[in-house]
Amino acid sequence: LFHSNNKNSNAILQIHHFFSEYLKDASKKMKSGLMFVKLVNPCSGEGAIYLFDMCLQQLFEIKIFKEKHRSWFINQSVQSEGHLHFATPMDPLFLVLHYLMKADKEGKFQPLDQVVMDDTFPNCTLLLKLPELEKFLGHVTEEKEIDSKKYYKYSKEKTLKWLEKKVNQTMVALKTNKINVGARVQSAVFFPSDQMSSNREEDYIRYAHGLISDYIPKELSDDLSKHLKLSQPSASLAKPSIKDKIKLSDEPVEAKEDYTKFNTKDLKTEKKNSKMTAAQKALAKVDKSGMKSIDRFFGPKSKKKDLKL
């Protein structure tokens, strides 16, 4: 998709059905409205690629599946990188929350357009064009209205409640999709439902907490863990150098996206991979019972034989 130094490169993009629906309606006059921009990753603070659909007024997250030693044949051509890009709808509140928490250091109520500002990622103002956004701000802020202008202030208490709901609905999806969240399972295979019972409720909460933690800063993830009454791992272990290490993923724009979700080799064979997000790193060190969620979710069972040609 964004392969550097190769303008002819093909890449694969999986687009959510919102797109297909959108396409049916797309008229010829529609010249633009779909664009990839770089915004802050609310977990790591680094840049990541997102997709805006200004017509549907929907934000999409881009995840890249990367596996070593994979290439594509695309019709009558070869593409060396066997990548698969996923564009899935994203709750913009995670991104706005990042700015609300930052602005909270000033400790006052502020209009949203003064909160969502970023010299590094100026495209963040596109978030303000999402019409639904204001409706949901109440999940994470206290509101004041003065002269029919609204002012917001981050509320940790409300945010934790909101995140708890997120965890709950994610748990439901984990169960529906029969995703094995058990602690000591070696395989990434999805188990038939009779074996599912071995998944304890707390494993689901941990797993869901891990997934949500990829969209919030580490400290909030810790608070959420307490709020959910998950047994506290001695998390401080991994803390100090995380920020610095994340900087290592300072590659061209496309590489700044957090690949670790899909790039499971990192997990199994290169646990200290610098591309892991802060939360993932911390979690990887302290607890292996289901918190690293997405990584494990995509984890390979065994190392497949590779073929170099």
Binding site: Q14, K63, E67, F86, I294, F297
Partner: peptide
């Protein structure tokens, strides 16, 4: 067991994570 297959289930999980509460 293929990793790609795992990845292809990501969108349904992402839908739950990002659905409005």
């Amino acid at each position: 067991d293929a990793k790609v297959r795992g990845a292809l289930t990501w969108p349904s999980l992402a839908a739950a994570i990002h659905a409005q509460v």
